[in-house]
């Protein structure tokens, strides 16, 4: 493959010390992700997938091993350097959305640009582009409390996109959503991937993982299996078949 490698880890370990006890959360992870890939990391709780995600997202550094993100060795960086990498190279999407409740949609999406210390003349244009890309036009002035779960997750995705990151890290992005809304969010991810975004999804639902191109199985801090998804689920096709919530209600009412 001649594709550019965006993530490369070599023998990453992570050891936590809880009092006298050492917890080996990761025992040596070798992982390569190509630019433009859409992968899922799966595993039961305690398998180390959160720890791996924290390290891939530069929220944490590995105890040993090498981690190259977009050609930068980030395994030895200090707090402030990591913050800059998170700001420029990583876009986070969390299960619980993690929006700032006091800021409106526009301000939440703008937030990462406030912390990137570079002048940008087309910042406004970029923000509106991202709002449009996730289908939130017209909701710019709404507060998160005025939004549905799906809309909140769209804001989070727009926020993740704003600084043009090298990777998007999504931690159980559909975990708090009903299946239809979850499918809509997956459709957005698939669209973004089609446009060339590298996306890493952490999930424990196989249905969701099957939307991606490759699944990596973690257990006890090691990669135990890695497989290409033969026929990834296309979210938009599912959505066409899926009845909308209103339709279901109409059916229910008319059948009574």
């Amino acid at each position: 493959m001649s594709e550019k490698v965006i993530i490369k880890t070599e023998n990453i370990t992570k050891v936590y010390k809880i009092g006298e006890i050492e917890v080996h959360a990761l025992r040596g992870i070798d992982l390569e992700v190509n630019d433009g890939e859409f992968i899922a990391i799966m595993g039961p709780s305690g398998s180390g997938k959160s720890t791996l995600m924290n390290i891939l997202g530069c929220l944490d550094t590995p105890t040993s091993g090498l981690y190259l993100l977009d050609g930068i060795d980030v395994s030895k960086l200090n707090d402030n350097e990591l913050a800059t990498i998170r700001n420029v190279k990583v876009g986070f999407v969390f299960q619980t959305f993690n929006l700032l409740p006091r800021l409106n949609v526009f301000q939440n999406i703008e937030l990462p640009t406030i912390y990137s210390h570079k002048k940008s003349n087309n910042k406004l244009k970029k923000i509106y582009e991202c709002i449009e890309a996730v289908g939130l036009k017209g909701k710019e002035r709404n507060r998160p409390t005025e939004l549905s779960g799906g809309e909140k997750q769209r804001v989070a995705i727009a926020r993740a996109l704003i600084n043009n990151p090298a990777i998007i890290l999504a931690d159980e992005p559909t975990g708090n959503l009903d299946s239809r809304t979850g499918e809509e969010i997956m459709a957005i991810f698939q669209n973004l991937n089609k446009q060339g975004k590298t996306i890493i999804l952490v999930t424990h639902e196989l249905d969701i993982a099957n939307h991606t191109q490759r699944i990596i199985y973690l257990r006890d801090g090691l990669i135990v299996k890695e497989e290409q998804v033969k026929n990834p689920i296309i979210a938009e096709e599912i959505l066409i078949k899926m009845p909308k919530l209103e339709d279901k209600l109409v059916e229910k009412i008319s059948s009574n």
Partner: peptide, 15 residues
């Protein structure tokens, strides 16, 4: 939590 969010998206300690 707000501090965590701000840091996750790139706020430095100084910010």
């Amino acid at each position: 939590r707000e501090i965590g969010i701000r840091k996750a998206i790139g706020a430095k300690n100084r910010d």
